[in-house]
Design a protein around this nucleic acid. Sequence first.
RNA 1: GAUUCAGUAGCUCAGUUGGCAGAGCACAUCCCUUUUAAGGAUGGGGUCCUGGGUUCGAGACCCAGCUGGAUCACCA
Length: 628
Amino acid sequence: MQITRLKGANYIIPSFQYTNGIIPYKLYKPYQLYQLYKLLFFCIFAFYSTTKNMQLSEQERNRRESLEELRKMGIDPYPAEEFKTNVLSDEVLATFDDEKKNYQDVVMAGRIMSRRIMGKASFAEIQDSAGRIQIYVTRDDICPGENKDFYNVIFKRHLDIGDFIGVKGFVFRTQMGEITVHVRELKILSKSLHPLPVVKEKEGKVYDAFSDPEMRYRQRYVDLIVNPQVKETFRKRTMLIQSMRELFNSRGYLEVETPILQPIPGGAAARPFVTYHNTLNMKLYLRIANELYLKKLIVGGYEGVYEFSKDFRNEGMDRQHNPEFTVMEIYVAYKDYNWMMEFVEEMFEKVALDLHGKTLIPYGDIEIEFKKPYPRITMLDAIKKYSGYDISGMSEDRLREICDKLDIEHDPSMGKGKLIDQIFKEKCEQHFVQPTFVTDYPIEMSPLVKKHRKNPELTERFELIINGEEMCNAYSELNDPIDQLERFKEQLKLSEKGDDEAMFIDMDFVHALEYGMPPTSGLGVGIDRLTMLMTNQPSIQDVLFFPQMRPEGREQGAGGREHRDEFLELGVPEEWIEPLIALGYDTVEKLKEVEKPGKLHQQMMGYRKKNKLEIDTVTLEQVTEWLQ
RNA sequence: GAUUCAGUAGCUCAGUUGGCAGAGCACAUCCCUUUUAAGGAUGGGGUCCUGGGUUCGAGACCCAGCUGGAUCACCA
């Protein structure tokens, strides 16, 4: 065997000829290689698409046939060039005037969402990014000449609900009073091969809504197409973030980015995701909070820094929790938690006004008033009020007794802080429906917070509770490096006790504090939960485009793919392998279990007919041979 | 992780004591020049989530599994 390298050739791949024991290698330049690979991928795709074709429903086959027909008629169903529109549907619907006769030359584009064909004239609705508008198409307008194929064949037969089209024409009002675009020219912009759910609406009542949560979350694009209110929810989510960003920027605070891959997952109490870096040969964690990094930037001298950050926590999933979620954290130098409470009031009021134009927002069966100021209550007062016990200064053992009396679960791994937290969550939290600041948390559950200026057992921390849920968490940040190290050590003891959410010690953070951090107040806001509240959505999945879901467990004939060669060895034509798998014979063994060749043969022919496959038939003799 | 409910046509859903797999919309064919979820007529379309079991017979009953929802636990 011999390989010669020719001048100018960069890559060597073998050609499949064999002569005299020498394998001649043909030499290709990169561009030629690219062409070859393109061909290879095309073949794989073609094979994939034909095999896929066999499992299509009738409606999907119809659309693929239409696609081919369009191509045969010289129409590109996926044209490349720009289609320049000059107006969106909502503007036309809002400002069309019968007297003024405006919009006499509109160009619009969108997806066909409904169609009613009546002889030479048709009505359809197209949906663009702003909404839906009716269009009116007549045969003689879009086919000015003798040939009426564009209307009779292309528009009536080969266009479907879901296709993107572009139209040029003028706006008028039908006899029924609906503002409509009279189409003079129509262009196909993109053919849709999969039928959409058809949702219909009359006088606010929705028929046949696409409502299965599993399908809505897995195929969010379909959800967005057919459920316009979903689009609006996500638009509000973006507005909410913009509204907050505006406030921060107007104060001169700097938006920053900090690492998601962290060697120490610090700044919160939660179980992290673990990953691995090959070059560094070490574990890295996906961040559970960005607090410590942002405070390092305050040490660095910025007045205020903030970040909208994706955090990752390896905990349970339900309608309030997704493994990845968004938090906004902001740190401002020379401020304390009292200042921060006022800042939060201002921020929430602004967000409510920017999104709704008012501060009283409906949520489920209740209404929430975001007008500032919000009431404040200390945690110990809250517990006294709702449980009847004054727990200030109590020992851990006394707290356990209280928990028993109140019928609250606890275990030995829980320290004083967690016990108090537990009592609060069980007995108090649900009572705070309207925005309420709960302040002055016990020191044991707040390792990053400055001690209270009046009571060393407490800290200068608050949470904003709305509808029984924590929306914000903020402190006067601890900036005493010696105290900070002690608190971390306490956390370490908790972790040895079995609390797997207790914090790690980040020595670099302590080191940063040793250089000196100005007095600082920090705040974290759960953006997903705030969005739920502000858009009146019951679950976090409704405010995340792509919530985490279990992968679908379809095996997709995986066994069959591996056993493809065995089928070939048996003499089964390649094009018949997929149909056999579809019929349930995904291994050669299963095939051989068939007792009567006639039965199998009939099944195969039946499948071919039913699915209108254009592949060669096999004879009963062939089938008999396979089974022997 | 526990409990519970659900999974039937492209979509929304019926399906009686266990007895031929159904409706509306969508789709196809034909008729019709302005319909307001739905103009008229006719027709095609199913792995009843998967795998076992009971039975002469299972979409339905039993067991196991998959996926999702709800509630609880953990967490924000």
